[in-house]
Design a protein around this nucleic acid. Sequence first.
DNA 1: ATTGCTTCCTGAGCGC
DNA 2: TGCGCTCAGGAAGCAA
Length: 264
Amino acid sequence: MPELPEVETVVRGLREKLTGREIDSIISYREGTVIDERSEERDYGNIIGIHRKGKYILIDTDSNTTIMIHLRMTGKLVFDQPAEESHHCRAEMKFTDQTNLIFDDVRTFGKINILDKGSEEMKLSFLGIEPFDKGFDVEYLQKKLSGRKAPIKNILLDQSVIAGLGNIYVLEILHRAKISPLRKSSDIKKREIAAIIHETKEVLREAISKNGTTISDFRRVDDKTGEFQKFLRVYGKHYCKCKSEILRVKQAGRTSYYCPVCQK
DNA sequence: ATTGCTTCCTGAGCGC
DNA sequence: TGCGCTCAGGAAGCAA
């Protein structure tokens, strides 16, 4: 499931492969996957920049256009692959030099929004802070947690609090910070908040350096898998490194994994 | 204001 | 072999 490190990995791949290419067409093979919301009809233009906000991929062109892509759970962007080789091809971007980019998405939740440049600002204004921003510090998180009765796990998953975390990384962060995902947010102590901040940056940095986590579907732009799944400590595990059994519980509709001995 | 449930969707894995 | 059930989950939308 693409979270910040996987999206960052894809963005880096896209930047290398797509920068400077001219978009000839964008084909939607499924109703609702590609949505052109621009104020007027015009060419897509040449790709001049690719970046990321939270889990959203943003592709800028010189035609006053920003292409916003969200992979959701099973979306993949694969460069230079014939559409017929992709099992669940939902959309395709064709370039004037005959190369292409395939949007493959088994569960069809992913979306490609074609926008007037700048209008993504408003659309993404609900997003919270980026984990690598200077402002992501104890003071920021303390403010967000104070008075909140929901479990810490739920708050960390909230994109309007921190942009980019998903189920896997939130659980890895809490395990490294030695905090149970069940803890009430307002009860988390200052030094524990500091641990969460530190481990968030650390886990994300490590995961990006390993090209993200592939559990089942995630692929890089060259269709290779990530490697961080080898370094997970709780997600999907049966035993903690301390030999205790990892517990599984449902929180906000998602499975949480945690070690009742290491995490308090 | 905050919280939590349902919905979208398909394929894998399991029991019978 | 094949059927039906459960599970995986990001974010929107809605209800309490």
